[in-house]
Design a protein around this nucleic acid. Structure first.
Length: 695
DNA sequence: TTGCGCTGTCATTTT
DNA sequence: ACAAAATGACAGCGC
């Protein structure tokens, strides 16, 4: 025990480490802390474990030989380099095994943390030591049974177990050990005892360093027993340990251990800075009350760490552990005395209302500490992905807290509702002037918004939720009337369900879920989500008619309805506006449809006319062609006739000087062209004269 | 980021 | 004169 301090345990680091690791099942983000707390050998071994598959500089485990250190010693954050060469390995191993923790590489620890969270120690990772065994199939953990002294003393540590027949048997035992704890100690008490075992061991170590006085003498006895059994194991030949280490490393090289998936899982969990809750837990957690430090010998650093621990775990584990319920069970079982105390202390700060000041997340977010302390059978099951999605959404709003966005959240998405919110249009008559007041103020948000506000203050019940409370209302549950009003004025859309024949999907198509409307749709229940704005308003004002009825009923029925039923002015105004808007909406749709029809008809007419034009063109071409043929025939006939004509002297008639002219009686005369041209002129002049006379 | 189309709504005109 | 329908114009939204 005296050799611990030169390694890596400055001050109370070992104690803190062990405390943290004893709580490891509830923590997922230990990287930094473990870097600070774990010895360099573990970091080196970590590289061996995780980098062996790709790194050619793979070096044997530092535990193979007394001086065999990996290449990553210098990577230790604090630069502390343990003098392992000078350290008797047996003693080293003994001490390490006594601790039960330090041989676990950092990522192994993290992997186990995740694994224990995910698998709930189902495969034997019950305790901190068993985690290593589970993650590496008998790998780096000092024990495979969750840190039970039995496996330690029995040489069950696969890491240092020799490969001799004895070692082989022990290795098999180590391989089989993951199932042992379940068989031996299948219940919560077993795990609790294992946790206590680790905690006792760590407490003892802390006492050795004089940094922690709260560990009881009973724990010292238990630890001494561990040491005795451990010494037996550590006295084994060095080559046995080497071989075991090699076998362990081979497993990593072969990828047969479960560390990869766990690492991936860890990376998946730890590499999500966008996880708002994680960020909140680390950054926005208020200081713990002084009482938290009581009885745990921890500084503010550890208190904060525990806070981060509790916050991170609850959110992630709730997402991860749903399938097999193991962690919840584990969480409950692991909350044995020391840990429970620790977590209960944390519970003071894990109240969501503290994380989100001024908010009421109880509707969404189950109390975090409650899950740790009293994880009932429904706590984590109920935290499905959807809920966490909403939590993240909500936390994003809070974490990012863009005042503008938040203000927009409470504004009309399509109007400047700032005026309408405080405008008091008490005039009961909903006339255009009244509407214009509101509408002019809020743009597309009509007077009905004002009416809704009136309804909030008057007819509806006079409750008008404060904006700061609106977004935190549990609107997913029984969507109360107030919630409807709150969101109908926050997230109103311009949707109607006016035409009964129109399917719901069509009406939904009117609803264009924008940025804010998507948020709205998240918080409105399924019923309200399908309602249009006027429908929600009608519902808010308890109007006993559906929007369809209001819009489509005949005028007489509508008037009689207004007269027969006792309706407030607000209701009447809303009904009239609903009818007006509904009618106008349908009219606009018809108008547009008509306009489209007209356009389509015009387009059809254009097509028809173009086709007709082409037809006429073709006909014209054919006519021209026929005319040309006729002309050609006439020309041929003309020359044929003149070729046969002879004058009085028997000479052929020149067709250039004479022309054929048909008389009215059908006779054909040979007329000189001069006479023909003069006769044509006379005829044309006569025609013109006749035309002038007619005009 | 911009442009386009769709839709709801309002104001106005037409029937 | 009134109501209903039709229509132009505008804004929001999604693509």
């Amino acid at each position: 025990m005296k050799h611990l301090k030169p390694w890596w345990s400055d001050g109370g680091g070992l104690l803190h480490l062990t405390i943290l690791l004893s709580l490891a099942g509830l923590h997922l983000d230990l990287d930094v802390d473990l870097y600070l707390l774990l010895p360099p050998t573990l970091l080196r071994d970590d590289l061996l474990l995780w980098g062996a598959q790709t790194s050619p500089a793979y070096a044997p485990s530092p535990f193979q030989t007394s001086g065999g250190r990996g290449r990553a010693d210098h990577l230790h954050p604090k630069g502390r380099e343990p003098d392992l060469a000078a350290e008797p390995e047996g003693q080293l191993l003994r001490e390490v095994r006594t601790l039960g923790v330090p041989f676990i590489p950092r990522t192994r620890v993290d992997a186990w943390l995740v694994h224990s969270v995910v698998a709930g120690d189902a495969d034997g990772a019950h305790g901190l030591l068993g985690a290593a065994a589970a993650s590496s199939a008998g790998g780096v953990g000092a024990s495979g049974d969750g840190g039970s002294q039995t496996s330690l003393g029995g040489g069950g540590d696969p890491q240092v177990a020799p490969s001799s027949p004895l070692a082989a048997g022990e290795e098999e035992k180590a391989s089989a050990e993951p199932a042992e704890p379940t068989a031996q100690v299948p219940d919560a008490c077993g795990r609790a005892s294992e946790e206590n075992e680790v905690l006792r061991a760590t407490g003892h170590n802390s006492q050795q360093e004089g940094n922690d006085q709260r560990v009881s003498a009973q724990k010292d006895k238990s630890l001494q027993q561990k040491n005795e059994e451990e010494n037996k194991l550590a006295d084994k030949p060095e080559w046995e340990a080497e071989k075991t280490t090699d076998s362990r490393n081979e497993r990593h090289l072969n990828g047969t251990d479960t560390s990869f998936s766990l690492e991936e899982l860890l990376q998946l969990l730890s590499s999500q800075p966008e996880n708002s809750l994680q960020g909140i837990s680390l950054g926005d957690i208020p200081p713990l009350p002084p009482s938290i430090n009581d009885g745990m010998n921890s500084s503010a650093y550890y208190v904060n760490f525990s806070q981060a621990l509790s916050h991170d775990v609850n959110l992630h584990e709730a997402m991860l552990l749903r399938p097999d319920n193991t962690f919840r069970r584990d969480s409950a079982e692991r909350t044995s005395q020391p840990q429970e105390q620790f977590l209960q202390l944390n519970s003071h700060t894990t109240n969501p209302e503290q994380i989100f000041p001024g908010t009421n997340l109880t509707g969404f977010l189950p109390p975090v500490d409650h899950q740790i302390r009293n994880p009932t059978s429904q706590d984590l099951y109920d935290l499905d992905i959807n809920i966490f999605d909403e939590i993240n959404s909500l936390s994003l709003t809070i974490e990012g807290f863009d005042p503008m966005e938040v203000s927009h959240l409470f504004e009309e998405p399509d109007s400047d509702s700032g005026l309408s919110l405080n405008s008091s249009h008490s005039s009961p008559s909903v006339t255009k002037s009244n509407s214009s007041v509101c509408e002019g103020a809020i743009g597309s948000s009509s007077d009905l918004e004002c009416l809704s506000h009136h309804a909030l203050e008057g007819a509806v019940g006079g409750y008008y939720p404060e904006p700061g409370k609106i977004c935190h209302m549990d609107l997913r549950g029984d969507s109360g009337f107030h919630g409807d009003l709150a969101f109908q004025h926050i997230f109103h859309n311009h949707t109607y369900h006016l035409q009964p024949s129109v399917p719901e999907s069509t009406s939904e198509s009117f609803s264009r879920p924008g940025k804010s409307q998507k948020i709205k749709s998240r918080y409105l229940n399924d019923t309200d989500r399908n309602l249009s704005r006027d429908e929600r308003r009608a519902k808010a004002l308890h109007i006993p008619f559906s929007v369809d009825e209001i819009v489509h009923m005949p005028v007489d029925s509508f008037n009689s309805m207004l007269s027969e039923y006792y309706l407030t002015d607000l209701q009447v105004s809303l009904i009239r506006d609903i009818r007006r808007r509904g009618k106008n909406k349908v009219a606009a749709q018809n108008c547009r449809k008509r306009k489209l029809d007209i356009i389509v008809n015009l387009e059809d007419d254009v097509c028809n006319l173009q086709a007709k034009k082409e037809t006429l063109k073709s006909e014209r071409a054919q006519c021209n062609k026929a005319i040309n043929i006729m002309k050609q025939k006439l020309h041929d006939l003309y020359h044929d006739i003149f070729s046969r004509l002879r004058d009085d002297e028997g000479r052929p008639v020149n067709p250039n000087q004479y022309a054929l002219q048909c008389s009215h009686d059908g006779s054909v005369l040979i007329v000189p062209k001069e006479l023909v041209t003069s006769g044509h002129k006379k005829e044309t002049q006569k025609g013109k004269r006749k035309g002038e006379r007619r005009n």
